[in-house]
């Protein structure tokens, strides 16, 4: 084998090792920094776009949304399946004033939501997963872009709402979340909502979370037991 070929092979091996080491380090950083118990800083009841504008609803979807707002003003939340403790789904679980725990491993990321003992896992090895039928938390795949965790979710069931005000969506919605640390104890989730059946264009919203102190745990929350005590299904 000519010396130059050996050199190239050697360089490639060194380069591959350096890449692997870098990838490992980046993932390890992600583990340590993102894992923990988080609480939303400003709970969202009626989601707005990042520019504070209303979501760009198409006319039919706007009628649905306005009928929800009117019903709520009249004290009727029968349009909202969460009122009987059904799954709030995403992104609404990310907007609610209940803590969640993030567990980060190279192969999967898990969100353990306190609200009604929901969990969702994000597959970090898949680029795309089949959606057998739409579900409230959808089917999520993720990857890291530097220190940002990108989560793409499809397969979201249209019987859920985007927020407590009653913003609707279709089961063709695609969510892209970009989670990054704004500091050691602050986490941001920038969410792009792409749903051509409901909105005239993709739009973005953002929420921030504060890390709960060391020793914080997710408590057992049972919505059906809670509403029997006269408490709301979700705040």
């Amino acid at each position: 084998m000519p010396a130059s070929a050996l050199n190239i092979a050697g360089l490639a091996a060194v380069f591959a090792m350096a890449l692997a080491a870098h990838a490992h380090a980046a993932t390890a950083d992600g583990h340590d920094a993102f894992s923990g118990v988080w609480m939303i800083e400003h709970p969202v009841t009626a989601v707005k776009a990042v520019d504070s504008h209303d979501p760009p609803l198409l006319p039919e979807a706007r009628k649905v949304y306005e009928s929800h707002l009117a019903a709520r003003r009249a004290g009727d939340t029968s349009y909202d399946s969460v009122s009987w403790c059904a799954g709030a789904g995403v992104p609404r679980l990310m907007f609610a004033p209940y803590p969640f725990e993030l567990l980060v491993q190279p192969r999967r990321v898990a969100f353990l939501y306190q609200w009604n003992h929901w969990a969702r896992t994000v597959d970090m090895a898949a680029k795309q997963l089949d959606v057998p039928y739409p579900i409230s938390i959808g089917i999520a795949v993720g990857h890291w872009e530097g220190a940002t965790l990108i989560i793409e979710t499809t397969g979201l069931r249209d019987s859920t709402l985007l927020d407590s005000a009653g913003l609707p969506h279709s089961d063709e919605m695609k969510l892209t979340e970009r989670l990054r640390l704004l500091g050691p104890d602050r986490l941001e989730d920038r969410i792009t909502i792409d749903d051509a059946k409901t909105f005239s264009r993709p739009w973005r919203t953002a929420v921030t979370y504060r890390r709960k102190p060391e020793g914080a745990v997710i408590k057992e929350d049972v919505c059906l037991d809670r509403i029997k005590k006269g408490e709301p299904a979700i705040r």
Partner: peptide, 13 residues
């Protein structure tokens, strides 16, 4: 069929 069993939460716009 369902009955609504939770009080509505106030939604601010």
């Amino acid at each position: 069929d369902r009955v609504v069993c939770s009080k509505p939460t106030p939604a601010k716009r």
